[in-house]
Computed example of a mutant assay.
Amino acid sequence: MARPLRIVLVRHGESEGNVDESIYERVPDHALKLTGRGRKQALAAGAELRELLGDGAVQAYVSPYLRTRQTFDLMGLDRNRLRVMEEPRLREQDWGNLQDVEDIHRQRAARAAYGHFFYRFTQGESGADVYDRVGAFFETLHRNFERPDYPPNVLLVTHGLMMRLFCMRWFHWSVDEFEALSNPDNGEHRTLLLGANGKYRLDRPFDRWI
């Protein structure tokens, strides 16, 4: 099995929904675009990743949401060394359809009290549902690792909650540990590094709730 040397998880840049919750009443979550600040964050992330990945080939998996695709495009990675797959299982936690801002606030407060992992949004998903999606994606990922020509670098351009749940599943964290962690900022990344012992470690921890 040709396991990659590193698996890099990147959160999309700042989106319209990060600065204006009322937009969820008019625009589907999957169609939200990056803000000007988000575009700058994507460019900065690309500069960091080009240095991190060096000259190695990269297999990229990108959430189909517009803001993640825009983030990936703005990174400016060398397309000659890049394989790209759109991966719907890496999408954001589903909230349902168009939302009411007052209901968003109510449900977020309820989720904070109930727990981010188990709370299910009305007509949407719980964190546990997204965790199951991650497990299904792992099956694909590990099958791909068996290819003799699999690249040494894996890149996932996705969402904050998905990054935490990916690591929870990979490192077998408990629900309590997951709940204690916060999402990375927009444009931030975390990297799973393959050690000499054949096991992966996280390059730096997620921040913990204060």
Score class of each variant (00 low, 15 high):
residue 157 V to D: 04
residue 182 S to F: 00
residue 60 A to F: 02
residue 175 V to H: 09
residue 205 P to M: 08
residue 105 H to Y: 09
residue 2 A to S: 10
residue 188 E to P: 07
residue 100 D to E: 13
residue 33 K to S: 11
residue 192 L to W: 01
residue 162 M to Y: 06
residue 88 P to G: 14
residue 45 A to H: 04
residue 17 G to I: 11
residue 168 M to H: 00
residue 111 R to Y: 04
residue 158 T to N: 09
residue 191 T to L: 02
residue 95 W to H: 15
residue 188 E to Y: 10
residue 33 K to M: 08
residue 57 A to L: 12
residue 29 D to F: 10
residue 132 D to F: 12
residue 74 L to V: 06
residue 72 F to D: 03
residue 28 P to C: 00
residue 14 E to T: 12
residue 45 A to D: 07
residue 180 A to T: 07
residue 195 G to L: 08
residue 210 I to F: 12
residue 167 C to N: 06
residue 45 A to C: 12
residue 183 N to W: 01
residue 119 Y to M: 06
residue 15 S to K: 03
residue 47 A to F: 11
residue 117 F to T: 02
residue 127 G to M: 04
residue 101 V to L: 15
residue 17 G to T: 07
residue 129 D to Y: 12
residue 153 N to V: 15
residue 63 S to E: 09
residue 183 N to I: 01
residue 21 E to P: 00
residue 25 E to V: 05
residue 197 N to C: 04
residue 140 T to V: 14
residue 84 V to M: 10
residue 24 Y to M: 05
residue 85 M to H: 12
residue 176 D to C: 01
residue 193 L to I: 11
residue 155 L to M: 05
residue 16 E to G: 11
residue 12 H to P: 01
residue 163 M to P: 00
residue 185 D to F: 11
residue 112 A to F: 06
residue 114 Y to L: 04
residue 201 R to A: 14
residue 72 F to A: 08
residue 79 R to C: 04
residue 16 E to M: 12
residue 10 V to P: 04
residue 192 L to P: 03
residue 47 A to C: 04
residue 145 F to A: 07
residue 51 E to L: 07
residue 66 L to H: 13
residue 161 L to T: 11
residue 119 Y to L: 01
residue 22 S to V: 01
residue 162 M to L: 11
residue 155 L to D: 02
residue 182 S to K: 00
residue 61 Y to C: 04
residue 99 Q to C: 10
residue 13 G to C: 07
residue 57 A to V: 02
residue 72 F to R: 03
residue 80 N to C: 05
residue 152 P to W: 05
residue 104 I to F: 11
residue 193 L to D: 03
residue 200 Y to P: 05
residue 101 V to C: 12
residue 2 A to G: 06
residue 161 L to N: 09
residue 208 R to K: 15
residue 82 L to R: 06
residue 14 E to M: 14
residue 196 A to N: 08
residue 25 E to Q: 14
residue 82 L to D: 08
residue 30 H to W: 08
residue 63 S to Y: 10
residue 198 G to M: 13
residue 157 V to F: 07
residue 18 N to D: 12
